[in-house]
């Protein structure tokens, strides 16, 4: 007999890479459940503020609810403080928002990317209940296990144990970082059935933000 399931996994992968003065945030646009593809063009990325972009995969219903909730909170912040929320502030807000639902969690795996108050690229990576860390790059979602080792290999972030703390941003140029992101998605699409169709890439830098799409395998 059919039983009520409050969650489903709609798949998808999110990546963010931070550079000295830019940040790349990317996610595929496939929406699946089980072996079915529901949509080939469903965005996982929310532009929450000028210098703050969130990419989330997991259960799409929760992802949309979470992203709308954060967008509403950001708007209130804007009205109260007469400025846009910074990326590190949004990072803390996202953590609190996730933990607020600790015992009925948002089934959402988030990567938040943007520029910090000094204009440096930043990436925050989360689990579903809100624990988070600032890093130089990250991948989340169904293809994360395929992408993360490649990013580790190519970006060689300094150990977080080093003292004094070393900068986590990647040494790549902006266009090299975008090319790397395209490559890891093209590769993960080969083996992960939940990743594919199209790749949405958002680049944030001091000039503002730029969005582009590339096609991925559709099988």
């Amino acid at each position: 007999m059919a039983r009520f399931e409050a969650y489903e996994n709609n798949g998808g992968t999110c990546v963010a890479v931070a550079g000295a003065d830019y940040c790349v945030v990317a996610a595929d646009t496939r929406l699946s459940v089980g072996y079915s593809i529901l949509s080939r063009d469903s965005s996982k990325i929310a532009h929450l503020a000028d210098k703050c972009v969130l990419a989330s995969s997991g259960f799409q219903g929760d992802v949309k609810a979470l992203q709308r909730n954060l967008a509403a909170k950001e708007l209130l912040y804007e009205h109260n403080h007469n400025k846009k929320m910074s990326c590190p502030a949004m990072a803390q807000l996202l953590s609190n928002t996730l933990y607020y639902k600790r015992f009925f969690p948002y089934y959402a795996f988030n990567v938040l990317g943007g520029l910090d108050s000094e204009g440096k690229g930043c990436v925050f990576t989360y689990d579903a209940v809100g624990s988070y860390e600032r890093t130089g790059y990250s991948a989340q979602g169904t293809g994360a296990a395929l992408m993360m080792p490649v990013l580790d290999n190519q970006l060689k972030s300094p150990s977080p144990l080093l003292l004094p703390a070393r900068d986590a941003v990647t040494p790549l140029s902006q266009s090299d970082a975008v090319d790397l992101v395209k490559d890891v998605f093209a590769s993960a699409t080969e083996r992960d059935i939940y990743t594919g169709d199209k790749l949405e890439i958002v680049v944030i830098n001091s000039a503002g933000s730029h969005r582009e799409f590339i096609e991925l395998r559709k099988d």
Binding site: E5, E8, L31, S36, L38, S39, F59, Q60, G61, A65
Partner: peptide, 22 residues
Amino acid sequence: GMVNMIGTHFEENHIATGFGNH
């Protein structure tokens, strides 16, 4: 557009629910 019983939703050019999806 479509929405299911737990709130997953999207827009498409053609949609089929249930067995039709297969």
